[in-house]
Every structure is written in structure tokens, then in C-alpha cells.
């Protein structure tokens, strides 16, 4: 039975599950980053999501946007480095765009990914095709925007986009960050940021079924 919308508390609980999933995936993220970057993405995300759990667990929020903004602030202030800034920006700007909505519906999901991805691009300067997390964010935004209707449909579509973007990133040559020094050697492996975004989007989708 597709769900029409998530309440504020359900949105918070969804993000707590996302936090657990990312913490669990630390070895996967570390391996993905070791192949192309400096190998600290897994540890950074684990640290960020541990702070997210502290910020969300047992707390009440006035609107769904504040849940996402809380996630962003916790990641930003605990992770440091470039990834703390971009993941923090994703959740802070995506949450801010939801204004004072008291539930998360399909349109809200689409707004979250659209505003989040646009702000990550303007903040970090990455474009689609640069082999960064943007390559999962943009398709997640596009697919969820096309899926008019329930929160279930929008989350399924966003996850589909994020996963497709992660897979497509394998065939891209890195032009940003540390991986750019590898040039064509970066082919054949997905971007670690895309791996994280795909896990986040898939966990949000799976939360509805649970």
C-alpha cells in the first residue's frame, strides 16, 4: 500500500535508519574512496551520521524541513573537510526549501532533491559528469520530479535515479577533488560520494516498506 505522506516523526525516524545504514556501510565507503580518493570518506560519513543520531534521536521538530536541516548541521559540524560541507549543504538547503511543511509528500521529496542538488553544485562547483556525488543527486532530483504523487512513488523514483547515477559514475573520468590526478585510471569504479547518496536514497525508499 503506497503511503501518501510521512509525518514529521516518521521523517525523523527515516533519517535515523539512514544514519544506521551509512554507519553499517563504513567499510564499503572506505573501500570505494580508497580506490580513488584518500580513503577517509567512510570514516567521515560514519562520524557525521553518529552526530546525526545524537541530533535526531528522541527529539521533536516543528516541521519536516527542520529534520533535514538538523541532519545537515550535524554532518557539517562533525565531519569537516569538503565532504562535510557538501553533505551538510545537501540536507540543509534541501530542508530549508521545504519551508514549514508539517508532512513530507511526493512533491516535497522532489523539492528536497532538486534544491539539495542545485545548492551542492553551486557550492562545490561540480557539474554532472565530473564523477562526484552530483552524478547521483541530479538523476535523483529528475526522477523524483517526474514521479508526481505519493511520497512512496517519489522515494522509489529518487532511489532509482541515485543508483543509476552511481552506476553511470563508473564510466566517468574524475575532474574534481583528489581523484582528478588519476585521470583515466579513475574509470571502472564508482564515485564514493555517489555510493553514499545511493545508500541514503535506497534506505529512504525501503523505510516506507518497513
Amino acid at each position: 500500500m503506497p503511503k501518501e505522506y510521512l509525518t514529521i516523526d516518521e521523517t525523523r525516524d527515516m533519517m535515523l535508519v539512514v544514519a544506521d545504514k551509512i554507519i553499517e556501510a563504513e567499510p564499503i565507503l572506505t573501500d570505494a574512496d580508497r580506490a580513488l580518493g584518500d580513503g577517509d570518506h567512510g570514516i567521515g560519513m560514519e562520524r557525521g551520521m553518529t552526530a546525526v543520531k545524537e541530533a535526531l534521536d528522541g527529539n521533536e521538530f516543528p516541521c519536516v524541513g527542520k529534520v533535514f536541516m538538523g541532519v545537515g548541521m550535524a554532518m557539517m559540524s562533525s565531519m569537516g573537510g569538503a565532504s562535510g560541507a557538501v553533505f551538510g549543504t545537501l540536507f540543509r538547503s534541501g530542508g530549508k526549501a521545504l519551508k514549514d511543511a508539517e508532512s513530507l509528500d511526493g512533491a516535497g521529496v522532489a523539492t528536497f532533491w532538486k534544491e539539495g542538488s542545485e545548492n551542492v553544485m553551486s557550492r562545490g562547483g561540480a557539474k554532472p559528469g565530473d564523477k562526484t556525488m552530483v552524478d547521483s543527486l541530479v538523476p535523483a532530483a529528475e526522477k523524483s520530479a517526474a514521479a508526481t504523487g505519493s511520497v512512496s512513488e517519489a522515494l522509489i523514483a529518487a532511489a532509482m535515479g541515485a543508483v543509476a547515477g552511481r552506476d553511470a559514475s563508473e564510466d566517468m573520468i574524475a575532474t574534481m577533488g583528489r581523484a582528478k590526478t588519476l585521470g583515466e585510471k579513475s574509470l571502472g569504479k564508482p564515485d564514493a560520494g555517489c555510493v553514499s547518496v545511493a545508500i541514503i536514497a535506497e534506505t529512504m525508499r525501503d523505510f516506507i516498506d518497513s
Binding site: D40, M73, M76, S77, S78, M79, G80, G81, A82, G84, A85, G88
Partner: peptide, 12 residues
């Protein structure tokens, strides 16, 4: 001051 070889987060 950031962590070792990492930028300081915005709150710092």
C-alpha cells in the same frame, strides 16, 4: 583549526 590535514568545519 581543522582536524589533521582537513579543513575546519563551518561551526568552528
Amino acid at each position: 583549526c581543522g582536524d589533521i590535514f582537513a579543513a575546519p568545519p563551518p561551526n568552528i
